[in-house]
Simulated assay, not measured.
Amino acid sequence: MIGRKGPAPVGGAQGQPQGEALRLDGVRKVYGAEDNRVVALDGVSLSLPTGSFTAVMGPSGSGKSTLLQCAAGLDRPTEGRVFVEGAELSGDGEAALTKFRRERIGFVFQQFNLLPTLTVTQNVVLPLKLAGRKVDRGRARTVLERVGLGERLNHLPAELSGGQQQRVAIARALVTRPRVVFADEPTGALDTRSARDVLVLLRESVQVSGQTVVMVTHDPVAASFADAVLYLADGRIVGRQVAPTAEAVAERMTHLAEEVERQRTMAEA
């Protein structure tokens, strides 16, 4: 297991290094019509400091992915506000929201979402092209070397392993120098060794570059790479754990799943 810095993390406990990276104020997300509503997020508020690595965990249906999508501006909350580095993800139109995301946010998903006809380098610089920014191939090479793919610049995705493709996806997320990187189950499709490599890279982006990482995961080992774990149940934050270990996270998840099941059974009785 790699070492941790001391910062921490959720809600500014132990001091906030260099300010606030992400804040959610009373975020609520409701899907469906009045007679068939699903409350995916139920008034979530949180504050994450710059330069922190936070894992988000919870039972199936707890609202993890919805939280990530609303925080990243991929989905709009029904109620509440989201701020990235003090700037609100506002409703000034889809074009303005897209520009905001490209300037401040990076994404890493379980599915690598690489374009199969583009080389590794071309995939990595694509966000710069889409944002109308200067394509700095030197920067792209540096980032790819940092993720261990300096010898794969002209390869196509099909010529890479799953772990290598995910590292390309991380390089693509980092090349624009985003302040916050959102990762949705980034190791879910990887073997154990590749998963650890990806987690080390995310950890290094925090420690070396001062970026902020928010990662949804179901894996206690992946969560143990974070500074802190946020636990969700039924769309609400129900706990947090600082400096987590895989064993402590697994135990917490077991008790949380049992408690959620017990409450749902009582509600249906």
Rank of each mutant, 00 (worst) to 15 (best):
K134C: 00
L190S: 02
V249M: 07
Y31F: 15
L160N: 09
S209V: 00
V229T: 09
A269G: 13
E268R: 15
A140P: 03
V206C: 09
G235A: 06
R137C: 04
M266A: 15
L118K: 07
D136Q: 09
K129H: 11
R152F: 07
P9Y: 09
S60T: 13
A189E: 13
V125A: 09
L230D: 01
E85G: 12
S209C: 00
A72Y: 09
E259A: 14
D75P: 01
M253Q: 13
R139L: 13
D184T: 05
R81G: 03
V135Q: 12
Y31K: 05
G80S: 07
A269Q: 11
R28A: 10
L24W: 02
F225Q: 01
V143M: 13
A195N: 08
D197T: 12
F53E: 11
D42I: 04
E34M: 06
R28P: 00
L201Q: 14
T254H: 11
V168F: 10
A226C: 11
R262T: 08
Q166W: 09
V249G: 05
K134W: 01
R137L: 10
V135Y: 09
A96I: 03
A228F: 01
F53L: 12
L201G: 07
S161K: 06
T212L: 06
E251I: 04
R152N: 05
V216M: 04
R179P: 04
R146F: 13
G43Q: 10
T217G: 08
A248R: 13
R4W: 01
V214Y: 04
K134A: 15
L230I: 14
R4M: 12
P244Q: 02
E258D: 14
S224W: 01
A223R: 01
L24S: 03
D92G: 15
V10I: 15
A243Q: 12
